[in-house]
Amino acid sequence: MSESAFTVADIGGTTLRIARYGTGTDAVTDIRRTPTEGMDRHPGASVPDLQARVVEQLTELAGRAVERHRSSALALAFAGPVTADGRVTAAPTIWGGRGEPLPLRLMLEERLGLPVVVVNDLTAAVWRYVATEGRQPFCLITVSSGIGSKVYRAGEVLLDSEGHGGELGHWTCDRSPQAPRCDCGGRGHLGGIASGRGMRAAARRAALADPAGYARSHLAQGSPDPERLDNRTLVAAIRAGDAFATAVLRGGLVHLASAITSVFTSIGVRRYVLMGGFALAVGARYVELLTEEMQRLGCFGLSAEEIRGMVVLGEPDDDHGLIGAGRLLVARSTARQAVTAR
């Protein structure tokens, strides 16, 4: 007898991932990736146009996957705040400006004809780590196209019904008039400064401000023209210990460290799991540099040694949202069955 399956999807500013989640094996298979039909592929398009493109893409590709997987449900991890009833209220890395709230769960259920769960991508990813982190509270942070976060505590992700909570990427950490713009349109947000996109932009600005320093760096070897610098070159230079690239990264990490120490000071969470393409690509060096900045700032009541163990890297893949979405569906199905059995 074949195991039952769910179709799971994870859509971000760059990539849409769709896979089969086996409820018996707790594993994802048939993983397929495609560029997201958002503003990266269609720069200058209006928010309504991009919303329509993304919904059409999800309907088409998820519909095919549901047929292949013979799924009983679909779970979508979405890169933006999502309400308890599955409405997307913003998608800075996918369609930029806020636009009108999109009832994505209802739209997909009507088009696909099966139950659909839509949650924030970090909310889904949290469920991948619930088992490994045990009962202790933890904060999951992604550093990729943008920055997002979610806190798991006492058996749940801390969110209100409108999806508010865990949006560290939109904390204003630079109030200067010339602060970098975030994808959401605001200025000085953590995500616009310390994300992968933010770090690439910061490296380009640093190159223009110090062309001689840039010319001596590993960055210039990989990209003589700083305007053509990409994150792959930046990551390689940081991993190689390049002073210029490392200084750029530190400039962003001081803000991320400040955000983390604020979370600790306000609610006492002592465990921070990092995921996302940029942070995982830099790897152990990212954790080392971030921890150094946290130690400089200090966490009230903790020693430098205690701070050293607060931040760890997540699993070295991009399946967090897919696996988490599958586990979330299993958890919700189990909860429904328990209620029905009473």
Rank of each mutant, 00 (worst) to 15 (best):
V263S: 11
S71W: 04
R232S: 08
T7V: 15
C184T: 05
R327D: 05
A206W: 02
A304S: 13
W171F: 09
C139V: 15
S333N: 05
Q51I: 14
L102R: 01
E305V: 14
Y214D: 07
I193F: 04
R228F: 05
P224A: 14
R239S: 08
R53I: 07
V235F: 07
T233W: 00
A125Q: 02
V273H: 04
R32F: 09
T14F: 01
G186C: 12
G96E: 00
R239Q: 15
G283C: 10
R181H: 14
R308L: 12
R87I: 07
I193T: 03
A75L: 13
R200E: 03
R232L: 07
F264A: 11
A9W: 00
R17A: 10
T172N: 06
S46G: 09
A245L: 14
R53A: 15
I267F: 09
G96F: 00
G324M: 07
Q57H: 13
F264D: 01
I238E: 03
L328W: 03
L208V: 14
D242R: 04
S258E: 13
S72V: 14
L159D: 00
L106M: 05
S333V: 04
G113S: 08
D174S: 07
M199I: 13
L122I: 15
S145K: 09
Y286N: 02
D242V: 09
E227L: 15
C139Y: 02
V248Q: 03
A154H: 14
G169L: 04
L61A: 10
N231C: 13
P48G: 14
R336F: 02
G268Y: 04
T340C: 07
F264H: 15
H69Q: 10
T132K: 11
H69D: 15
H170L: 09
A79T: 05
L234F: 15
G38A: 12
G192Q: 06
G86K: 00
G241E: 06
I141D: 01
G185D: 03
A79V: 04
G13I: 00
E60Y: 08
G166A: 10
T132G: 09
R68G: 02
A91T: 12
G169V: 07
L313S: 03
T15R: 13
G80Q: 04
R68W: 10
L104Y: 05
C182I: 02
V287D: 03
V263F: 06
L229S: 01
G22Q: 04
S217V: 08
L168T: 08
R270E: 11
R33V: 13
L61P: 00
E56T: 15
G321K: 01
Q221G: 08
L16G: 01
Y286T: 06
S217Y: 04
R181G: 10
C173A: 11
E306C: 06
T83V: 09
A243P: 02
